[in-house]
């Protein structure tokens, strides 16, 4: 980001100290509270390295000793999706949230970290996103094979089909789309993540053999009809997945399936 002529726009006047406000919670049922930390500013920090600094020496800006903040992290290359949180009010991965960029955007010297709000909050910035994996079971997000023995090559695929499927297949189940969706709360709406996967598998020559099962799932009470078309999902998706297109295409399929599907039964 902030790239001009291929080179980076730099923060002109970096602050001496960086203030980090963290929304904390001791346990799933306990109340939330804020704590502010201060660390010396350095170039090239990201939110993860800031959190690592604080973890090493968990003392607040007022000099109070506290517990180290808890958060999830793994790949640190924005491909595993685990370190997602709400940063300065926007949901994103903390590994790719660079402090300089955040300071340029906000114009201040403080950054604000909160856990995602649509999932059970385990502790501090850590949430439980297992419902997203349950969605994948519900929509039959796999290709059925006769076996894993050698049956030769897969189906021929055009470059354009590959490109479209690849875009959907990059979904890392991070949950940004669900956090930003005004319609998604626990079980009322399955949400864009699963709909993108329905599209992915319904496009595959073998995967589409189970197309109707996926469309049936889309017609349940928590199905695709609950989309309110706010289009927030596509704006926050870190992988640039064309989620609104998936919703549009799948919705069309569901409508046809709903009208004529029963004739086949």
């Amino acid at each position: 980001m902030s790239s001009k002529n291929g080179t980076k726009v730099r923060l002109d006047a970096p602050p001496d100290k960086l203030r980090v406000r963290i929304r904390r919670r001791e346990k799933t049922d306990s109340p939330q509270y804020d704590e502010v930390f201060e660390i010396p500013y350095r170039r090239n920090l990201n939110v993860i390295s800031v959190l690592m600094d604080i973890r090493k020496n968990p003392v607040t800006a007022d000099g109070k000793e506290t517990t180290p903040p808890v958060w999830d992290m793994n790949c640190l290359e924005q491909v595993c999706g685990i370190c997602t949180m709400v940063i300065n009010g926007r949901v994103r991965q903390s590994c790719s949230a660079l402090i300089d960029d955040l300071l340029v955007e906000s114009g201040g010297n403080e950054i604000r970290l909160e856990p995602m709000s649509k999932f059970p909050n385990v502790r501090d910035l850590k949430v439980d996103r297992s419902p997203m994996f349950d969605h994948l079971k519900k929509v039959h997000a796999w290709v059925e094979l006769d076996g894993y023995h050698d049956l030769g090559a897969g189906p021929h695929t055009s470059q354009s089909m590959q490109a479209e499927r690849y875009a959907y297949s990059r979904c890392m189940t991070c949950g940004c789309c669900l956090e930003a969706c005004p319609q998604y709360f626990e079980d009322n709406y399955i949400g864009p993540q699963a709909i993108g996967q329905v599209r992915l598998f319904n496009m595959h020559p073998t995967g589409q053999m189970d197309r109707e099962e996926r469309l049936d799932a889309m017609m349940d009470d928590d199905g695709i009809a609950n989309c309110g078309n706010s289009q927030n999902c596509v704006q926050v998706c870190p992988m640039n997945i064309p989620l609104t297109r998936a919703i549009y295409e799948t919705n069309r399929e569901v409508t046809v399936h709903g009208l004529f599907g029963w004739l086949k039964k």
Partner: peptide, 9 residues
């Protein structure tokens, strides 16, 4: 490929 990995073509 049979499992649906979108390999470049």
């Amino acid at each position: 490929d049979r499992m649906g990995v979108p390999f470049s073509r």
